[in-house]
Amino acid sequence: MRLSRRQLLQAGVAGSLVLAGGGWLAASRKTLPRPGGLRFLTADDAVVVSVLAPVLLGIPEVPRAAVVAGVDAAVLSLPRPVQAEVRELFDVLAHPLGRRWLAGLRDDWREATPQALSGFLGRWQTSRLALLRSGFQALHSLIGAAWYGQPASWEAIGYRQPQHVMERLP
């Protein structure tokens, strides 16, 4: 596998965007409002999570708000330097340039089709660029953990806690 000219160009854009991510992209978004109850994700980040969740999890009807809340809580439990990296990831994704050039999505997140979103996840999952692969890993583990950490997800996978123990917990 060789990097195409286009991929190299994108890599350049990726590098500079991510370097900038902590700077002007973040600075330009600092004041964005957070939807009710969220402490880390901005309204734009929440859109990214809520459109990706059904596609990533393979569950079209997944309760999106619950996944968004779960991701928010999961990020808050990470150490500050890791939170800062997640911040950069969302800043890049939610920015039109990042969405267009790094995620490869022409349309706004809200309008992106499941096929387009799936294409984005697949490109990042196996990208030649370690940075994009780690971006996929972050989205994957945050969204996966946010959903499957919730009891609402367990029935569909045939899991339950042992009831005879639960009722005797101190």
Partner: peptide, 17 residues
């Protein structure tokens, strides 16, 4: 268990589900 499996499994979409 569900959460650690979800975070550790590779893949996404229908195969993952």
């Amino acid at each position: 268990h569900p959460l650690i499996l979800a975070a550790t499994l590779s893949g996404f979409g229908e195969d993952y589900r």
